[in-house]
C-alpha cells in the first residue's frame, strides 16, 4: 500500500545510497524488503480468509446461495484480464533488464490498461450488487434461499476481500504510473531497474490474491 510506494521511491536511480557498499547489495536488500512486505500482505489478507473458512464451514448452503448471485462470466473475465496483466508485467520487468525503453513503456502501459479494465468491471459488479440491495448494512435485503444473516456475512466477506483487493489494485495502478514515467524518461538501464523488479513483485502478488478469491467467492457449489 502506501509503504510499497515509499519503498519504490526509496531507490534513487543508479546512485548508490550511502548505507550500501555495492549496487548488488542494494538490489538484494530491496528485493528482500519487498518479499518481507508481501509476507505481511499474506497475513493481512489471511485474517479475512480465516473468517471466510469459519463461516463457510458453518453456513455452507447460505454461502452457496450468496455465491450464486455473483456473475461468473464477469468474474472469469476479470481473472483472465489480471492474468494478462501479470504477463505484461513480467515482460516489462524483462524489458527493464534488457534496458529496452520502448518495450518497457509498451508493457507497462498494457499492464496499466488491464488494471483499469479490471477495476472497471469490478465497479460494474459493485454497482449491480448495490442495485440488488446486496451491500451489507441497513439496506441489505435477501429473500432467496439460506439464512439471511449468513448470506449477509458472505457478502460482508465478499466486499471486504474484493474491496481490499481493489484497493491494492488502485495502489498498484499508482505504482504503474510512476514506473511508466520513469521508464519513459529512460531511467531504467541494464545496470539498474530495481523499481521495476519490486513493483512487479507487488503486482503479481495482487494477481495471486485474486486467483484465490475467484473460486472461493464466485464458484461455490455452482452445479446445484
Amino acid at each position: 500500500m502506501a509503504d510499497a510506494q515509499a519503498h519504490a521511491q526509496d531507490l534513487e536511480p543508479t546512485a548508490l545510497q550511502h548505507q550500501f557498499d555495492s549496487l548488488e547489495q542494494q538490489f538484494d536488500a530491496s528485493v528482500l524488503g519487498m518479499w518481507v512486505f508481501l509476507v505481511t500482505e499474506i497475513m493481512f489478507f489471511g485474517g479475512l480468509f480465516m473468517a471466510y473458512i469459519v463461516y463457510r464451514t458453518w453456513y455452507p448452503d447460505s454461502f452457496a446461495a450468496g455465491s450464486h448471485h455473483l456473475d461468473v462470466t464477469l468474474g472469469m473475465t476479470n481473472t483472465m484480464v489480471l492474468i494478462a496483466s501479470s504477463l505484461t508485467m513480467a515482460l516489462a520487468v524483462w524489458a527493464g533488464q534488457q534496458g529496452n525503453r520502448f518495450r518497457q513503456v509498451l508493457f507497462l502501459g498494457l499492464t496499466l490498461l488491464f488494471g483499469f479494465a479490471f477495476l472497471g468491471i469490478k465497479a460494474y459488479e459493485y454497482w449491480e450488487k448495490f442495485q440488488d440491495h446486496l451491500v451489507p448494512g441497513p439496506n441489505f435485503v435477501w429473500d432467496g434461499p439460506g439464512n439471511p444473516h449468513a448470506v449477509q456475512i458472505f457478502y460482508s466477506l465478499y466486499f471486504a476481500m474484493t474491496g481490499l483487493h481493489a484497493l491494492h489494485m488502485v495502489v498498484g495502478a499508482g505504482i504503474m504510473i510512476t514506473l511508466l514515467v520513469m521508464a519513459a524518461r529512460g531511467r531504467f538501464t541494464r545496470q539498474w531497474s530495481t523499481p521495476l523488479e519490486i513493483g512487479g513483485l507487488y503486482w503479481h502478488f495482487v494477481d495471486i490474491v485474486w486467483i484465490f478469491l475467484f473460486p472461493l467467492l464466485y464458484l461455490i457449489e455452482r452445479h446445484v
Partner: peptide, 30 residues
C-alpha cells in the same frame, strides 16, 4: 512482520462491524 497485519485487519473488521452491523462477530446476526 508476521503478527501485526492480522491485528490490523481485525480492528478494521471491528470498525466495519460497528458502523454497518455486518454480523461478523455478533451472535445475534450469525
Amino acid at each position: 512482520v508476521l503478527g501485526t497485519p492480522v491485528i490490523a485487519i481485525t480492528v478494521l473488521l471491528v470498525a466495519a462491524e460497528r458502523v454497518l452491523h455486518l454480523g461478523l462477530f455478533d451472535p445475534k446476526l450469525g
